[in-house]
């Protein structure tokens, strides 16, 4: 028996919105520890990794580890039937054919339940080493979203350069070119969540497809902060912490010299 209850059901809506344009089908693994998902996009250029700890749920029970093969677009359709303030409960048997979703309005006046058919999905799991990255940038997620959106109008590839002073995002295209630099905040600058913080061992410059970075920014509603982890010649990690429950991280392979 698997049962997981989230008072803030809208969180689940936001998570599926943040994944479904990149990944169509995925296995969500449920264990005593919580929910995890690892899935690549169809072209194997990027990977999305979701982690929701059991302690972040209001109620969590998982007697036996199970894998839920989900069509994320279809799950998104069902979650659209939930109100934004609804409490959402997920339920499945030990050898499930379906996932039951129950939505309860805050005053308990409306209770609905839906069953989503599960699928057998063959996935390739990648072993991702626990790496110490040379640069970690923490910045407001809305700022990152704006930069990616703005630069995507000009070109396809973004050069991200991280130095102690700041992070430079550069693009060039047929119409011209552009750069946006965000500088490290000084300690006196306002709110923690509005700050840009850079931890750097050595400067890093990498090239990335803006199209994918754009997919990742669908996670912006999940939190005020995004973290970018970079080292030379390896995929970037774009990590969105989800307050009190876990995180969603995207890995994107760089564009490299031919």
């Amino acid at each position: 028996m698997f049962e997981a209850r989230l008072t803030e059901g809208s969180l689940l809506k936001k998570i599926i919105e943040a994944i479904k344009d990149l990944v169509q089908e995925a296995n969500v693994d449920c264990s005593e520890e919580g929910l995890t998902m690892q899935a690549m996009d169809a072209s194997h250029v990027s990977l999305c990794s979701l982690n929701m700890r059991h302690g972040g749920f209001d109620h969590y029970r998982c007697d036996r580890s199970i894998s839920l093969g989900l069509n994320l677009a279809n799950l998104g359709k069902i979650l659209k039937c939930a109100g934004n303030d609804d409490v959402v409960t997920l339920k499945a048997e030990d050898e499930p054919d379906t996932l039951t979703l129950m939505f309860e309005s805050p005053n308990q006046e409306r209770i609905s339940d839906f069953e989503l058919k599960l699928m057998d999905i063959e996935t390739e799991h990648l072993g991702i080493p626990n790496e110490e990255y040379k640069c970690t940038i923490s910045m407001p997620s809305g700022e990152f979203q704006r930069i990616v959106r703005d630069l995507a109008v000009i070109g396809e590839t973004c050069i991200i350069t991280c130095t102690k002073e700041g992070v430079k995002f550069s693009v060039s295209g047929d119409l011209g070119n552009g750069n946006v630099t965000v500088r490290q905040s000084s300690a006196a600058d306002g709110d923690e969540k509005d700050q840009v913080k850079i931890q750097m061992e050595e400067p890093v410059t990498l090239n990335f497809a803006l199209r994918y970075l754009g997919f990742f920014t669908k996670a912006t509603p999940l939190g005020s902060t995004v973290k970018l982890h970079m080292s030379p010649d390896v995929p970037i990690v774009v990590e969105y912490p989800i307050d009190g429950i876990g995180s969603i991280s995207y890995f994107l392979a760089p564009k490299i010299d031919e």
Binding site: V45, S46, L126, F251, D257, E258
Partner: peptide, 14 residues
């Protein structure tokens, strides 16, 4: 020119 690398160039299949 630059080409898009695949994740398989960096991570092993489990």
């Amino acid at each position: 020119g630059r080409k898009q690398a695949s994740l398989f160039s960096f991570f092993q299949k489990k």
